[in-house]
Amino acid sequence: MDAVGGWPSAFALMSAYRQEVRTHRVGSGKCGARTSHFRAPGRLIHDLTALPPFQTLLDEHSADVMAVLRGAVGGGAEDCFQETFLAALRAYPKLGDAGNLRGWLLTIAHRKAIDHHRANGRRPLPLAAVEEEDPRATDALPDDEIWATVGALPPKQRAAVALRYACDLPHAEIAAALGCSPEAARRSLHEGMKRLRKELT
């Protein structure tokens, strides 16, 4: 998944992810005696609309969600992690599309990070988290005014800005999280930032 020029195709990302999902689910052929209406042994038949056991999401994405939250909220990461996965559990059975679960989780995480910043006001990030971060992000430490303005942006722009600056996601992952093309993600981020600059200066 080489980020050539920072813009790999979101489709490439998602198809790699889906391939991974399939690999985990190919039947072993041991259970031929048991009836199953949605799989047959030895074929790539995983139905992307069928929701996998929630534990699969934890196994595959909990470390990334935690890392993103550590970057975004430092010491508040554990609380945000719990809130993220509890919110995900609440909504999970009614989720219509199992195609982009990672993006779905990261989107919830970014909302929880924003909630955290709103609830706590401006709070310096712990040094360990700051050191790993892109200097551009640490220059722009979140504060109430900025996040209030971010919160007032249209949903796509708000999500793109928050995923970039609160969750520190690369552009390709923002596209994957929002379920749009990289071009659309770039446009949302650009429009959001333009609007922020206008309103904050």
Partner: peptide
């Protein structure tokens, strides 16, 4: 793995270790 998928489909996808 197959059993857990079956439980997710037949009971609820909220399956946790």
């Amino acid at each position: 793995g197959e059993t857990l998928e079956e439980l997710a489909a037949r009971i609820s996808p909220r399956v946790l270790e």
